[in-house]
Amino acid sequence: MRIYALAVYLFLYIPIAVIAVFSFNAGRYAAQLQGFSTQWYGKALANPFVMEALQTSVTVALAAATLATLAGTMAALALQGVTGRPRVIFDALLYIAVMVPGIVIGISTLIALVTVFDWLNPLLAALWPAGWSAPQLHLGIGSLIAAHGLFAMALVVIIVRARVAGMDRSLIEASADLGATPWGTFRQVTLPQIFPAILAGFLLSFTFSFDDFIVAFFVAGSETTLPIYVFSSIRRGVTPEINAIGTMVLAVSLLILVVAQSILQRGQRKGGGSAA
């Protein structure tokens, strides 16, 4: 049994190790190890295309995760008091947002936004005061944030709602009985209890957006995120530079995940509300 488990862990981690090992390869041929070097990290970090893609990815991930966490937490809190048909519809939409394949979300967002923009742009141009150039709506950072944020928000609602359900309701009632305003109760009683779930939701949202390729591939317009850059580079052949980028991306995601996991686990031990 133990040997079997070990084999599966090797299966899960050897490919990651291979990328890390080859990223320190001195030679420029991707398939042969020729000594240790960190030159590819330097090359990757000095490559303006990589840095631009990294900046786009970080901007999108931060914005999407922040907005998703705000909207998702608000919705998770409000859904406590919602029953009947609105609740069923809301739950169904959240479920669909998580379950519909990314590729279907990607293409539908692409054609919907392009269609809406084609219809809105002439309208904007007509409404804009003469002499000023009207803004042109197009796919880019905004559509990336909106599309990534959708999935992330559904994720935040699911995680935070589980925590809200496991919360000690008597404390909220006590706080109200003692004369606290709803806002005061939220800030001093509810928020400290659900904060681990909110933070974990934010971190997972960030990781999702930062790693996502398939949705971004469709809605990025002329922007390039880091996964899009990596994908188009792999198409031309794997290079040590790409391995260096891959290793850095994996390292960052691993770090964020370990933090998110330990927050969730600690939150569970303290509060007992299981966030799935």
């Binding site: 899960l12 990651i16 990596v230 995940l257």
Partner: peptide, 20 residues
């Protein structure tokens, strides 16, 4: 250790198999 790979870039983890 089982869950973490799922949340890291599937793109990068998949292309490792091009080597293997």
């Amino acid at each position: 250790l089982v869950i973490v790979p799922f949340w890291t870039s599937i793109l990068i983890r998949s292309y490792a198999w091009i080597y293997l």
